[in-house]
């Protein structure tokens, strides 16, 4: 009896240790970025396509103020309210002290330089698909942006979501570096996939989530979802539900006009601002990708 108990305790400890090991915050070493040099001009396009400023600028910022990444915008969700942190170049309150490798670990593993799990409101479940070159380019670009000394506001989350250790399990379930759309893609569709699945993180809003907050893939991919902020829905992007022509899509990404000549609203207006600042070929690439939907299981 005592022996069985001892064995059970031992097994329990091993399972717990294994769990802690498997869900620990991951950090890559410098070799992942070996030999790469950042190009700030290319990084500016990564920055725009990834929509960094849309969430990290001050609420309602316009013009050059959009490049002051002071944080503070609030994002309500079923888990609580997330507040975007300061990611300006301030060494103390922002990320001015981050090396390219630190940025890589945040974008790719959702891990801070201190080895802490970051919340996936920061869409690393999409950014995980960024290439090392894109990350070093982005790092070179954000080094050119201003510093702002505004301290970050902590998130306001309920139990158990305020326990960061639980995020290791979430990552184990949902953090996947592979592409969702597979198979033979044209070069244009392939470029569209980089923007849709990695940089512009479209699925973060436009794919439904399961009860633990993981984006559903397969036939559910980009089929629309309720707004976690409580009001309205994010539309289904899969044809035939999305019946816009390629021309309609490109016009929407360029001017924000819908086929009815209403204009983009809410956070999509920011996305349109970003897409409009990319080369026209990128906008047609996104349209080409969307026209390949829906995915089959």
């Amino acid at each position: 009896m005592r022996r069985t108990l001892f064995a059970l305790i031992l097994i329990g400890l091993v399972v717990a240790a294994l769990g802690i090991y498997l869900t620990r915050p991951r950090l890559d070493g410098p070799q992942v970025l070996d030999g790469l040099t950042g190009d700030a001009a290319a990084g500016a396009l990564v920055f725009t396509a990834a929509g960094c400023a849309s969430c990290h600028m001050a609420e309602g910022a316009t013009g050059d103020d959009k490049l002051v990444l002071t944080g503070g915008q609030r994002f309500p969700s079923p888990f609580g309210t997330f507040t975007a942190p300061n990611i300006s170049m301030d060494p103390e309150h922002g990320i001015g002290g981050w090396r390219a490798l630190d940025l890589w670990n945040a974008l790719h593993h959702g891990t801070s330089p201190e080895g802490q799990h970051l919340y996936p409101a920061f869409p690393y479940a999409s950014y995980v698909r960024m290439t090392p070159q894109q990350v070093v380019d982005l790092h070179a670009y954000i080094r050119t942006l201003p510093a702002d000394p505004t301290p970050s506001t902590p998130h306001d989350l309920g139990f158990p979501f305020n326990i960061r250790a639980s995020l290791g399990g979430w990552k184990l379930l949902y953090l996947r570096a592979g592409w969702v759309m597979d198979g033979d893609l044209t070069p244009e569709e392939t470029r569209g996939r980089v923007i849709v699945e990695a940089l512009a993180h479209c699925a973060e809003c436009h794919s439904p989530r399961d009860p633990l907050g993981g984006s559903k893939t397969g036939a559910d991919w980009l089929t629309g979802a309720p707004n976690p902020a409580g009001r309205g829905t994010f539309p289904d992007l899969t044809p035939p539900e999305l019946d816009w022509s390629t021309g309609d899509l490109v016009e929407y990404f360029t001017s924000g006009f819908t086929p009815e000549y209403d204009s983009a609203g809410g956070h999509m207006a920011h996305v349109v601002d970003n897409l409009a600042a990319l080369p026209e070929t990128d906008r047609t690439a996104v349209a080409a990708y969307l026209k390949r939907l829906p995915l089959t299981e």
């Binding site: 707004n227 360029t254 001017s255 924000g256 006009f257 204009s263 609203g265 207006a269 349109v272």
Partner: peptide
Amino acid sequence: AMGPLGGACSACHKAYRAPE
């Protein structure tokens, strides 16, 4: 000229129109 026009429409809708 479509882009600036769309931007001007959207600027007001972004700020002063509730989501659907």
